[in-house]
């Protein structure tokens, strides 16, 4: 029972950390139809900034997160202007190649400046101690990540379903040319959603650093995981991303706990099965 419960908590927290990162990618792919393999690179940049801010500048955890998100967004703006705008509407192969190229550049440049070592982001005291929830104790950091995930999911749902920006966003997704003709500034919608996606990647990279450690090849190592989660969930769907993250998080964590020798075997076997049955993901749009 104890084992099942700790697997469940770990799986939930890991799934939520994945979710925070992947929902941004899901937005980019669902809305802008860009297969952005460099999404993990933005999470990695944020991790490096947060680690630098917390360890070398001595800032607090909250300040480090904020600085990381802002810094990553600032870095991403020229990339969006100069590179991403050119591949909107290109074939998947072109987009994959361009974004793999960006990923390689980010890895090379960050390691040139920060050195090829594992970066840690020290947790504040309040998050590193266990919390008693009545029947057992849980690491506070796990609860924090779960709370962040729920907050992100709720916030995005509100933004997309309940605000006027959300209406414009959905209109642009359904028919960009028509939305443009009706006076929606689709370029601005694209730019804002790209910024939101990058900000979420940054947030996820920092709070998820306990599960996905910040290391030199971070962007490449987890690129596949993020892409897989999005294609399983269905691009552009919040519900699909939640379902995919929780399911794949559970499969991965359970596999590691019970059969550590097999590594990622179950993860990828599950992915092949799911993609074969649901080629568009759980909640993907048809067409």
């Amino acid at each position: 029972m104890q084992t099942i419960l700790s697997i469940a908590i770990d799986a939930l927290a890991y799934g939520m950390a994945l979710f925070i990162i992947c929902i941004g990618l899901s937005l980019t792919m669902g809305l802008m139809r860009v297969v952005n393999l460099a999404h993990g690179a933005f999470a990695m940049i944020a991790g490096y900034i947060a680690s630098y801010a917390a360890r070398d500048l001595g800032l607090g955890y909250a300040a480090a997160i904020l600085l990381a998100i802002l810094g990553t967004i600032v870095i991403s703006i020229p990339l969006e202007r100069l590179l991403y705008r050119r591949i909107y509407g290109s074939t998947e192969l072109t987009q994959v190649l361009m974004t793999i190229g960006i990923t390689f550049c980010v890895i090379g440049i960050t390691n040139y400046f920060f050195g090829p070592t594992l970066k840690t982001i020290p947790l504040p005291g309040s998050l590193s101690q266990p919390v008693d929830v009545g029947f057992r104790t849980i690491a506070a950091h796990r609860l924090f990540v779960i709370a962040c995930g729920l907050l992100v999911a709720g916030g995005l749902w509100f933004l997309i379903e309940k605000t006027s920006f959300g209406i414009k966003l959905r209109a642009t997704v359904d028919n960009a040319a028509m939305a443009d003709a009706l006076g929606v500034r689709t370029q601005a919608v694209y730019a804002i959603s790209f910024t939101v996606a990058v900000g979420l990647a940054a947030l996820g990279g920092v709070v998820g650093a306990e599960f996905l450690p910040i290391e030199p090849y971070y962007a490449l190592r987890y690129m596949v995981t993020f892409l897989v989660v999005v294609s399983v969930g269905g691009a552009g769907s919040i519900l699909g991303a939640v379902a995919a993250c929780l399911l794949l998080g559970a499969v991965d964590t359970t596999g590691r706990y019970l059969m550590p020798d097999f590594g990622n075997f179950f993860f990828y076997a599950a992915v092949i099965a799911i993609v074969c049955v649901f080629p568009r993901g759980f909640f993907g749009r048809a067409g």
């Binding site: 190649l97 190229g101 890895i107 440049i109």
Partner: peptide, 9 residues
């Protein structure tokens, strides 16, 4: 890695 990336772009 930086060079391959730049080359790809």
């Amino acid at each position: 890695m930086t060079m391959v990336g730049a080359l790809l772009i």
